[in-house]
């Protein structure tokens, strides 16, 4: 009887696992199926290396190099801003605070992660974009920089929590030794904690990069959505916002529709690479 129960239980677990795996497989297959129609018309290489996107134009006007670059650019700007802040916060959290304060700050960081992205986008649109227009007299505040700043706030929790975890471990491991040697805390942070946790800083960065590249709503509201070559103070377009913007209007079954799936496929491949890198880094942390 007990054996039977165990068997049923294991079978059930396997079934549920299979279900979640199948779900992923179906999504990948579906996107692949819809984009293959497009790739039959336009080669992948031309699709990702061409410079103009105009859904109303001819075949060779459907290419997304500026959009791919825009996706990467906005995420990188976001990381450049959030990395120093995030790592700094993690150092303070792990080495300079007592338990109560730590709990409070972690709670706040968690709340930061829980705010819906459209709220960030809204604030970005009304405060940040407006600020650029009024203070720096930009013609229009929508820019890569605005997108990067909004993204950096959204990335912070990821970087902080990844770094904080391993830094605390390192701190607990070495605090006694460094106290015994009488070195200052800042020396310990610089010489032990930061170097020891460099892998998790990297992991946090890659995780945030993946998060940033997939972010849709908040970014869409502040970057202007113009599919041109990105520059820091110019408008740009990212793949997720391109899809969100145009999918509702694309005629079903048209080349435009399949091109959007194809760009979704490109994004998926990009995120897949990011995740593999993340996996490799994480693996090397454990050893």
């Amino acid at each position: 009887m007990k054996k039977l129960r165990d068997k049923i239980f294991i079978f059930l677990l396997k079934l549920l696992t299979l279900f979640s795996l199948l779900l992923l497989a179906f999504i990948v297959l579906f996107i692949l199926k819809e984009s293959i129609v497009f790739f039959k018309e336009v080669s992948i290489l031309r699709f990702i290396s061409g410079k103009s996107w105009n859904p109303l134009g001819s075949l060779d006007k459907l290419s997304i190099l500026p959009v791919i670059l825009g996706t990467i650019y906005v995420s990188l700007v976001g990381i450049l801003i959030s990395l120093p802040i995030g790592v700094g916060t993690a150092v303070v959290l792990s080495s300079y605070t007592n338990e109560n304060l730590k709990r409070l700050i972690r709670g706040i960081v968690d709340i930061l992660a829980g705010i819906p992205s459209v709220v960030y986008g809204f604030i970005g649109l009304l405060v940040l974009v407006k600020f650029f227009e009024v203070r720096f007299s930009f013609a229009s505040g929508e820019s890569v920089l605005a997108g990067g700043i909004v993204l950096s706030i959204m990335m912070l929790p990821y970087i902080i929590s990844t770094c904080d975890e391993s830094m605390e471990k390192v701190y607990n491991e070495y605090s006694q030794h460094s106290n015994a040697l009488g070195v200052s805390k800042s020396y310990m942070v610089r010489k032990i904690i930061l170097p020891e946790s460099r892998r998790s800083i990297l992991a946090g960065t890659v995780l945030a990069l993946g998060r940033g590249m997939g972010e849709t709503m908040a970014v869409m509201m502040v970057i202007g959505n113009a599919p041109i070559m990105p520059a820091l103070f110019k408008k740009c377009q990212t793949i997720p916002s391109l899809i969100a913007l145009e999918m509702g209007m694309a005629e079903v079954g048209s080349l435009h529709y399949h091109a959007l799936f194809a760009s979704g496929f490109v994004l998926m491949v990009m995120l897949f690479i990011v995740n593999i890198v993340l996996y490799l880094i994480k693996k090397s942390i454990d050893i």
Partner: peptide
């Protein structure tokens, strides 16, 4: 005629 490429596209 095409609209200028850097026009802001609103969602």
């Amino acid at each position: 005629t095409q609209v200028r490429e850097d026009a802001i596209q609103s969602p």
